[in-house]
Computed example of a mutant assay.
Amino acid sequence: MVVQLVAPRLMLMGGGSVGKLAEVLAQLGLSRPLVVTDPFMVSSGLLDRALAPLRAAGIEAAVFSDTVPDPTDTVIEAGVAVLKAGNFDCLIGFGGGSPMDTAKAMTILAAAPAGTHIRAFKVPAAANLAALPVICVPTTAGTGSEATRFTVITDTERDEKMLIAGLGALPLAAVVDHEFTFGLPARITADTGIDSLTHALEAFVSKRANPVADDYARSAMRLIAPNLRRVWADPKDAAAREAMMRGATLAGLAFSNSSVALVHGMSRPVGAHFHVPHGMSNAMLLPAVTAFGLDAGRARYAEAARVMGVAREDEGDQSACAKLVEELRALNRDLQVPTPAGYGIAADAWNGLLPTMAAQALASGSPANNPRVPTADEIVALYRESYGG
């Protein structure tokens, strides 16, 4: 079996590693960065922790801080205008998944002919060209974007979250410092943590799984599953925070070299139409979608349950699978994940968009990777099941 693998050229991990950001740039021969971040990173002072080591090395970075929680085509276009107006040799995506995804999309669009819309690169197109390299510095333990060849951008005209994939979206380097996560609110900790668990689980059960991605996924699940409740209960648990950050990056490597599946395919339309945070929309769907795929992927789901520690090593597949679904439901309860109804989405609005969301989910290609590939009607049924009362 020939396995194609992609990963950043250089990854620096550990507490305080952001202090070596200037050294990372120097190793790569870079010195004129445009930092892509969001307004909170600026106002909170977190950005200063990345800029300080650059200034100390004589690097004055420019900052584009107009990113939004679900990156949009309009923000990407504004960022490209800033990028093209300056004399930059790299981008630094600093923050959660949104700034990192924005930086990736900016460099992809900047390499395209003038007038190109970012939707030209949505899957199944291959976004393999980039104008400048991207260095990612994540501040949450969730998206894994620092290690992946993907970015997700909202098409504002069509109300669609577009999956964009290719080598152009793969960061050149990543600096992964778990100390940024110490001050995260509980809600963000939970949502990003379940996002990373979903990445690992879907990569593991995907039809595009391979032995190397499996190793990443197993390691990620072993780190995330026992530590997610710990960081929810005690935000200052340094060992658990470090494990979650490492798990999130490993989960990113797993799905970047395998794929995500039905949960992500269904989650993106929920985020696009109802502005539910990505990790939360994954969590809303994860138990029902996992149960849907059990018969087709029983051995894989059962092994995942054992790796996560929710089933015994000698436990039979059927029992292990049942315990996995039970654990995912319990995790949502313990981490106070709302249903779509509990989030405040009106039933008529939800039901009225189900055919559109199902079509968009299928068009993304991710559902085709699921152990059990759904029809549009089955996706609609899963949306209804997940809605809640």
Rank of each mutant, 00 (worst) to 15 (best):
T102V: 09
A62L: 09
V36I: 15
F88S: 01
S17F: 12
A81K: 15
A26S: 13
F40P: 00
R55P: 11
A57K: 05
S17Q: 13
R55E: 12
G86T: 03
A78F: 08
T74C: 12
A105Y: 13
A50L: 14
P33H: 04
E77M: 10
D101Y: 10
E77Q: 14
V18F: 12
A52Q: 14
N87P: 00
R49Y: 04
F40K: 04
R49P: 04
A111C: 07
M106N: 12
A114L: 09
K20G: 08
N87H: 13
D101L: 03
A81M: 12
T67Q: 08
E60S: 13
T37P: 06
N87I: 07
R55M: 09
P71I: 11
A61M: 04
T107F: 00
G19M: 04
F88K: 08
V24L: 09
G86Y: 14
V24H: 05
T72C: 12
A26E: 12
P33T: 04
G58S: 05
D70N: 15
V82P: 05
K84L: 15
C90P: 08
M106T: 13
A50K: 03
V68W: 15
D101I: 06
L21W: 02
G115C: 01
G45N: 00
V24T: 05
L47N: 06
D101H: 04
G97M: 08
L34W: 02
A56S: 14
V18H: 13
T116K: 02
A22P: 00
V18Q: 10
G15F: 15
G93S: 10
G95R: 09
F64R: 03
P33V: 00
L47T: 02
S31K: 11
P99H: 09
A52I: 07
A78V: 07
S31C: 05
G115L: 00
V68T: 15
P69D: 14
N87D: 14
A78L: 12
D89V: 06
T67K: 02
A52S: 13
A50W: 01
A110P: 00
G16Y: 13
V24F: 08
D70P: 10
D38K: 02
T102N: 05
T37D: 01
D66W: 12
F88E: 06
V18S: 10
A52E: 15
L30H: 09
L47E: 03
S44P: 00
P113M: 07
D48E: 14
P33A: 07
L47D: 03
P113G: 06
L51W: 02
M100T: 11
G45I: 00
D66E: 15
V75W: 11
L47W: 07
A85F: 14
G16Q: 11
T74M: 14
G16I: 11
A56L: 13
